[in-house]
Each structure stands twice: as structure tokens, then as C-alpha cells.
Amino acid sequence: MNGGQDLGGVQGFGPVVQEPGEPLFHAEWEKGAFSLTLALGFLGRWNIDMSRFYRENRSPAEYYTSSYYTLWFKALEKLVVDRGLVTEEERRTGKPAGACDTSLTPPGPQRARELLALGTSAAVNETIPPKFSVGQRVRVKNLHPAGHTRMPRYCRGRTGTVEIDHGVYVFPDTHAMGEGKRPQHCYNVRFTAGELWGRPGPDTVRIDLWDDYLEPA
């Protein structure tokens, strides 16, 4: 979606501000929002692409005026209902209505540490031929999906060169919307600053892009 999250090249936000002391969390509730998001994620009812879409799928005005962990938490409140962990009534009242879902076993602390150390691979172990090859010139398609996408709009319609073929990965646009993994090659594509920003000089931007975003140039 052409949403508030798609920040590359947006102007007017001012200088980068570094915080004194750089606290990892600014309040207890931020720890709660962070740890609850990861802990409930372990139950497997949604994937990382859905989480990202739930954070970004709101008006840009709200996106820009909500803090980082506020967005995480707002997304989580909606995910737990939409993905069937609790009912809206339960979420609203804070009171469990029915019996616990015994099919879900939340990991204890030791298992959680193991899961964090394992991570979740987005690579797909399938042989799928790449549509493009390293060194090839490619153009980013003129796509405006209303759902989730990982194509930043600042590269839309721009031409670059395939630098790396990362291999076969989950396609976030469908994965986020519950429409399957649609595995395909993901590439790192090199764009010059001249192509993206009309600025001469040696600078480049490297963007990871999937087969479905690209066409031959």
C-alpha cells in the first residue's frame, strides 16, 4: 500500500535525532508490547508479513503520530482477534469468555530462548527458475497494490541492475494477506542516485526485490 510506512525520499521530517542514553525501552509498557508480540507470535497464528501489514495499514496521519511500539501494540490488539486467539468481546472486556484453547501450547522461557536463537527462515527450499540473472537490467513495475508490499515507491518505474540473486524466498505481498507463500527469487538490485533522485555522483541504493516486482529493461 502507498501508506505512511513507505518513507524513502519523503521530505520534511528534519534531522536525525539521537537520544541521550538510548534506552532500549522507554517505559514498562514498551517491554510488554515487544515481548507480548514475540511471545504470541510463537503460537504461529500469523506471520511476520502479516504483522508488518497490521502495523502499516492505517491512515498516514495515525502512522506518523504513533510511536514505534504503539504501532506494534495496535497491530497486536487487532491480530489476536482477527487470527482467532481471543474474541473481540474478550479483548474489550479483558475477561476470558470460553475455555482455554488447549491445542496451543505457549513456549516456556527456555523454549522461547531457543526459538529466538533459531529464528524463522523466509527462504524456500524449492527449485524455481529465476526470471532474471545477475548483471541484467531490470525495471520495477508500476504496481500500486492496496495490500502489503515490500516495493518502496521511490523505486517504482526505475531501472537498475541485478547485483545478487538471493535465491527463492517467500513473497511478502501474498504471505501478508493470507494468500500463500508464492515462492520466487528475490534479488538485490542496484540503482544509481541519478536514476532515483536525479543527482549526479557515485552513490547507489541497493534494494531487495522479488521476481513479481520486476520486468526486463
Binding site: 515481548s35 488447549t102 496451543l104 505457549p106 516456556g108
Partner: peptide, 11 residues
């Protein structure tokens, strides 16, 4: 609801 172990949040 038994969906989170509080000790996991701390971990």
C-alpha cells in the same frame, strides 16, 4: 487464557 507464560515475556 493460557496463551502466554509470563516467564517467557521476561525471557
Amino acid at each position: 487464557k493460557g496463551l502466554v507464560d509470563p516467564a517467557t515475556l521476561d525471557a
